[in-house]
């Protein structure tokens, strides 16, 4: 007669039982056994939710990227046509470059500023307060910030009113040539506080005596940064860089609230990859329902981010310094 799995493992346990008092079954307390039994269902629920709500749609998007799909009817296979079309699409090219500009230029801006603040704030009195002030824009909704930014920079805005008051001519802050630059500056303004907080948390761990010792040895501020601060907070910097890479590609609300009006899409020169996805699906007064195409662009961006993160991790790899 064939044994069931349970019977087989039970007989194995029987044969291995040593002499002496009978131990708790399976070498575990009843509590541990009950915990183990409940482990499955507890894991299953989040796993199922994650599969249904995240992994499933992601896999479907990857499939949809190779199809012609209006989001409603059955997708029809298109092979790699969506991808060749993307790189011939001036709107996507512009969005792609703008995304890279946010990633690299804004990223550099944020980290230069964050490092400067970090150095300034380290020995400053009331650094908690200053940190709070810099962090503030990160808490406020990007929509509100976008409205404020427009209010400040538009032709009849606050800044131009000041310039005119002092006898100057209004400046085209958000004209076709400068609007995206203003968006990038806003991105730096919004995100710097967050990265200052992360970097400061890393720097605050470094014991003060390293710096005292360096001062006694006559080290300059730059030498302290290079030989103490950077190596001892390297892992935190690496995490912050990865975080920025991922979040920079997802910037959407600010640009949309800043540039879009009356249910229309923002001007093309303000688009990034996330805005592009919205623009070819639901966005604008005449939505296009090009879901397959949008999925292809999202996939390209996903691959870009994955590549960037891998590169970044490799470039930032150092042996951890114990202290």
């Amino acid at each position: 007669m064939a044994l069931t799995l349970d019977q087989r493992s039970a007989s194995r346990r029987e044969s291995r039982r040593p002499a002496g008092p009978r131990p708790v079954r399976g070498g575990q307390s009843p509590l541990a056994r009950r915990q183990r039994r409940i482990f499955g269902p507890f894991l299953a629920i989040p796993l199922a939710l994650y599969l249904v709500l995240f992994i499933g749609p992601t896999l479907y998007s990857i499939y949809a990227a190779f199809t012609n799909w209006d989001g409603i009817n059955t997708p029809t296979w298109r092979g790699t046509d969506n991808f060749t079309a993307l790189f011939d699409d001036p709107l996507f090219i512009e969005s792609f470059w703008n995304t890279l500009l946010i990633l690299v230029v804004v990223g550099i801006g944020i980290f230069v500023l964050a490092f400067s603040f970090m150095l300034l704030l380290r020995d400053m009195k009331g650094k908690g307060f200053v940190r709070g002030v810099i962090f503030l824009p990160h808490i406020v909704s990007p929509i509100v910030l976008a409205i404020f930014w427009g209010f400040l920079l538009r032709h009849d805005g606050l800044l131009n009113a000041l310039i005119v008051k002092f006898g100057g001519e209004p400046v085209a802050w958000i004209g076709p040539d400068s609007a995206f630059l203003m968006i990038m500056i806003a991105m730096v303004w919004i995100s710097t506080g967050f990265y200052v907080a992360i970097l400061m948390a890393g720097v605050d761990r470094i014991p003060g005596y390293f710096y005292e010792d360096a001062s006694l040895a006559g080290a300059s501020a730059w030498q302290k940064l290079r030989h103490i601060t950077l190596p001892l907070s390297w892992d935190v910097i690496g995490v912050a860089a990865v975080l920025w890479t991922i979040s920079s590609v997802k910037v959407f609300e600010f640009i949309y609230a800043f540039g879009a009006s009356q249910g229309q899409m923002p001007p093309a020169y303000e688009w990034n990859a996330a805005v592009f996805v919205y623009g070819v699906t639901f966005g604008g007064a005449t939505p296009q329902y090009r879901f397959g195409y949008a999925c292809a662009s999202a996939l390209v961006m996903l691959l870009l981010v994955t590549g960037m993160v891998a590169l970044l991790r490799r470039a930032m790899r150092r042996d951890a310094v114990q202290f």
């Binding site: 427009g150 538009r154 032709h155 085209a172």
Partner: peptide
Amino acid sequence: PGYNSGQYPA
């Protein structure tokens, strides 16, 4: 003036 650097509906 400013048609080019304003924000709808200015």
